[in-house]
Amino acid sequence: MTSPAFETTTPDRTAYLDRVAATDLGRFYKGRMLDELDIRPGQTALDLGCGPGTDLASLARAVTATGTVIGVDHDRATVDTARERTADQSTVTVRLGDIHDLPLPDDTADRARTDRVLQHVADPAQALREIHRVLRPGGRLVMGEPDWDTLAVDHPDSDLSRAYTRFVADEVVRNARIGRELPRLAAAAGFAVPTVIPVTPVFRDAEAADKILGLERTARRAVAAGHLTEEGAGRWLDHLSTGPFLAAVTFYIVVAERS
C-alpha cells in the first residue's frame, strides 16, 4: 500500500505546524486572520493554542513595543519551544494552560486568536466561554477551523473516497465539523459574529496534499478501523499518486466580538 509520494510516519507536532505555516495556503489564511484581528499598537493579544510559537512574532509586530502578546498552550514541550523562539521579544510571554480554564483574569485582552485548535479540544463551547471571559468589552476573537465533513478527494471509485472521507469526519478528528459550527457556538457563548469567511484550498499535487492531509497515514488507520480494505486502500492510493489529483476542503475564518 506504500507509495513513494506519500509519508508513512507521522511528523512531530512542531514540524507539522511549521510546515503548514510555510505553505502558500498557510501564509494566505494566517495573513487573512491577522487582518481580521485588526490589532492596534499597544493592545494585548492572545494566541490560544499557540503551539511552538509559529504566529507569536507576527502578533508582536502588530501590537508593537507598547503592547503585549500572551501565548497559551497545554503541551509543555511546545511551550518550551515557543519560549525559546521568542526569548528576544520582550512583549511576548508564553504560559502553560488549558483553553477550557485559561490562566488569565477577566477582561485581560483586546484580541484573541485560535488556529486549528478547537477541532481538537474536549469542549469547544466551554473554551469559547473562557475566551469571552478573558476578552475586554469590545474585544475581538478570530478563529480558523476546517470543516472535515467537506473534504472531497477525486477518484474513479467514489465509494472508496467516500469511505475515506467519512472515516476522517467520523473518527479521526474529534470536532470534525467545527468550522460550520463556530458561528452558532460563538453566539451561544455571548459573542456577536459579524463575519464568516470560507477559504477552500484546492490541491492539485498529491505529494503536496499529503503533507497537509496525511493521505497514506490516514488510509492505513481506515484499514485498521475497517472502513477500507487493504486492497481498496492500495487501489485508492495508487491512483492518487499516479493519476490527475484533486482534493479540497473548506476552512472557515470566523470573527467574533464581545459587546
Rank of each mutant, 00 (worst) to 15 (best):
A60K: 01
V172C: 03
G71D: 01
R116G: 04
G214T: 02
R85G: 08
G226P: 05
P183A: 04
S90W: 02
R133K: 10
I99M: 06
V193H: 10
V196P: 02
G71P: 00
L141V: 07
D123H: 13
E130K: 05
V79G: 06
I197W: 01
Q43N: 02
P103H: 03
A222T: 08
R76T: 14
I70P: 04
L104R: 05
A112L: 06
D238M: 10
N175D: 09
T14L: 00
T114D: 04
A109I: 07
V142C: 12
G49S: 10
I131A: 08
D147T: 05
R177T: 12
Q126W: 01
L228I: 06
P52V: 03
L34M: 15
R180I: 06
V223P: 08
S259F: 06
F6S: 03
T54R: 02
H155K: 05
T250V: 09
P4H: 11
V72E: 01
E207V: 15
A219E: 06
T93A: 13
L237W: 09
A57H: 15
V142S: 11
R184N: 10
P244T: 13
T108P: 00
Q89A: 14
G49W: 07
T250Q: 08
D154N: 08
P52L: 03
A15E: 11
E84V: 10
D115W: 03
G26H: 04
R140F: 05
A187W: 09
V79A: 00
A222N: 04
L48Q: 10
H100L: 13
R113T: 14
R221W: 09
L37F: 13
P198G: 09
D98L: 04
A87Y: 06
S259M: 01
R129M: 07
P194G: 04
D80P: 01
T165W: 03
Q89F: 02
V121N: 08
F251A: 04
L182Y: 02
L215T: 02
Y16H: 12
Y164Q: 07
K211Y: 00
G42Q: 07
E130F: 04
A248G: 09
R19C: 04
V193P: 09
L160M: 06
L118Y: 00
L56M: 01
D205R: 06
A15D: 13
E145W: 10
T250E: 04
H239G: 00
D106N: 13
R180Q: 12
V168Q: 01
V20M: 15
A256G: 09
P244E: 15
R204A: 11
A225C: 02
R40L: 11
A125M: 13
I70G: 00
G42C: 06
V223N: 13
T218I: 13
V20L: 15
E230W: 03
A186D: 05
L34Y: 10
D18A: 12
R116L: 04
H227D: 06
